[in-house]
């Protein structure tokens, strides 16, 4: 039941883009076409889940025993950068088709604040999913990371779909490009606010 609450909460109620404002740059940057948006969502999904697993373990077995939790930011960004680099190398060797599909999105993920944001959230924030406030354990962290990145994909795909239509419509000159995109995201966020209250 709790896992179910985590999934609903992370995808709909606290959607990472529309409610938590993480990963906005790539969200606006690569949502022009549906195909690139799905590629980016896939890459982000993969890296967020993997990065959360590794940073969770680094935090639990390295930083906490040594009492150097204040180094979380530095340690995590290094782990993420190394991880992205490794994923890139492994994919290139083992699955060239997936590698070329993800293409330029992979290196960009290092500076996607959604990855660092989720990793830091998992180890520093207490969550209440129906029960008492508590830190997530490893299983819950992974489910949370996966669901959050699915929420990212969902927002991205919906927005890319809208944007493809938007590019064909007659928009006033000053609104062209990013301003109209932002207003659209605002309306999308308002729609997602309808989910709030589903999970406390």
């Amino acid at each position: 039941m709790e896992y179910f609450l985590i999934i609903i909460s992370a995808i709909f109620v606290n959607n990472i883009v529309l409610a938590q404002f993480l990963g906005i740059c790539p969200f606006l940057g690569v949502s022009n076409k549906l195909s690139t948006a799905t590629g980016m969502s896939g890459a982000v999904c993969f890296v967020i889940t993997l990065a959360t697993l590794v940073t969770y373990l680094v935090n639990k077995f390295l930083l906490v025993p040594l009492h150097i939790e204040f180094l979380q930011t530095i340690a995590f960004i290094l782990v993420i950068a190394a991880l992205v680099q490794m994923v890139e190398i492994v994919l290139k060797k083992t699955s060239p088709s997936l590698y070329s599909a993800l293409g330029i999105f992979l290196p960009l993920i290092t500076t996607n604040c959604a990855v660092l944001g989720v990793a830091l959230n998992v180890v520093t924030k207490q969550f209440t999913f129906g029960g008492e406030a508590h830190f997530l354990n490893l299983g819950e962290s992974l489910v949370y990371a996966l669901a959050t990145s699915l929420g990212y994909g969902l927002a991205m795909v919906i927005f890319a779909g809208i944007r493809e239509h938007l590019s064909l419509s007659d928009v006033p000159k000053a609104f062209k490009g990013v301003p109209i995109a932002l207003v659209t995201v605002g309306i999308l966020a308002m729609a997602f606010m309808g989910f709030s209250g589903m999970v406390k």
Binding site: V183, I187, F192
Partner: peptide, 8 residues
Amino acid sequence: VMAPGAFI
């Protein structure tokens, strides 16, 4: 003050 207002 909430999310939609920020974007708009």
